[in-house]
């Protein structure tokens, strides 16, 4: 697993170094702040979906949950809700969404792909309907503004708020996954659900927990994105973000077959994806190529990983 992190870290350093040498603007405080901010936002989503992927599932609804939370927040601000109450309600809503996904997957035995695909469509539709598909802003909610999109200045460099959220989320997630019995159970059930069940593990409850964590982090990201962008377009905000989150998780070492993943890997992978976008811009490569390049890099990363795994397995077998 550590080898996995080294690989993705190497990739990050390579692209980082190459871009830094090619364009002096890259290392400017403004650019780095931006990079850090967006990487953090992607990483939070990525960590969420990583939990679901570790169980062998998938969550396609992340982007729509982000859109829904951002839209509802705007509506609540408009109808003069107490902003803190609004935040609590929306966090509760996200947890509820995850709970429903988890119950449908475990108790109804529906496929995660189908459940969350329906979620993707449903929450997007609700966002557009509730807002009449109008772009909305967040007005003057100073406390939330500084909480979700403020900066902590260190000299000329401002550490963006999402970064602090990421640190808290990452530390808690890493402890949960690596140090608690539930994290161990999650990895075990991802590797072999029946085997885990036969060892006395309540697999359904853990799976549900994974979906709850994922939707919760999607909801949290929704609030962060909302205040970062300072407006919401119900049809677009968060669209396709689930794919970035899944890409970060997979590039970061999660196997879609389940049972594998590290939090640090996902964070670095999220940073690589953002870094690639940034580099494409700064290096003057046509931005139309952006998706193609990101797609190729992920494909190469995952293929290399698979090849290394096979070589290792072969060597082990030969012993």
């Amino acid at each position: 697993m550590n080898k996995n992190i080294l690989g993705i870290l190497g990739l990050f350093i390579f692209i980082f170094g190459f871009t830094a040498l090619s364009n002096e603007n890259f290392l400017s405080a403004y650019n780095l702040q931006n990079l850090l901010k967006w990487s953090s936002l992607y990483a939070i989503m990525g960590i969420g979906v990583a939990f679901v992927i570790i169980t062998g599932g998938i969550d396609l609804s992340i982007g729509s949950v982000i859109g829904l939370v951002a839209s509802l927040m705007a509506l609540m601000v408009k109808s003069a809700w107490d902003p803190l109450v609004a935040v609590l309600v929306l966090i509760g809503l996200s947890l509820g969404i995850g709970l429903v996904h988890g119950l449908l997957v475990t108790k109804m035995k529906l496929q995660p792909f189908v459940v969350t695909l329906c979620g993707l469509l449903f929450y997007r539709g609700i966002s557009r309907w509730a807002t009449d598909n109008q772009s909305m802003g967040y007005g003057d909610t100073a406390t939330l503004n500084s909480l979700f999109s403020g900066k902590l200045a260190i000299g000329s460099f401002g550490l963006p708020a999402p970064f602090f959220f990421l640190v808290v989320v990452a530390v808690l997630a890493a402890i949960f996954l690596n140090r608690t019995i539930w994290g161990r159970y999650l990895l075990a059930l991802g590797n072999n659900e029946k085997g885990a069940r036969y060892s006395g593990i309540g697999t359904d409850r853990l799976k549900i927990t994974a979906y709850v964590i994922c939707s919760f982090l999607a909801g949290l990201s929704g609030l962060l994105f909302a205040y970062e962008l300072d407006s919401v377009q119900p049809a677009q905000t968060g669209e396709f973000y689930e794919l970035y989150a899944i890409a970060a998780a997979v590039l970061g070492g999660c196997s879609l077959r389940g049972g594998q993943g590290t939090i640090l890997g996902v964070i670095i992978a999220a940073a690589v994806i953002r870094l690639l976008r940034n580099s494409i811009n700064l290096l003057g490569i046509s931005t139309h190529l952006e998706y193609a390049i990101i797609g190729m890099v992920i494909l190469c990363g995952v293929s290399t990983d698979e090849i290394i795994k096979r070589v290792v397995a072969k060597r082990r077998a030969a012993k």
């Binding site: 161990r184 075990a188 072999n192 085997g195 036969y198 049972g259």
Partner: peptide, 13 residues
């Protein structure tokens, strides 16, 4: 292999 063990985990785990 299917029910008794988590094949990809260690002896300890």
């Amino acid at each position: 292999k299917q029910h008794g063990l988590i094949l990809e985990m260690s002896v300890r785990e």
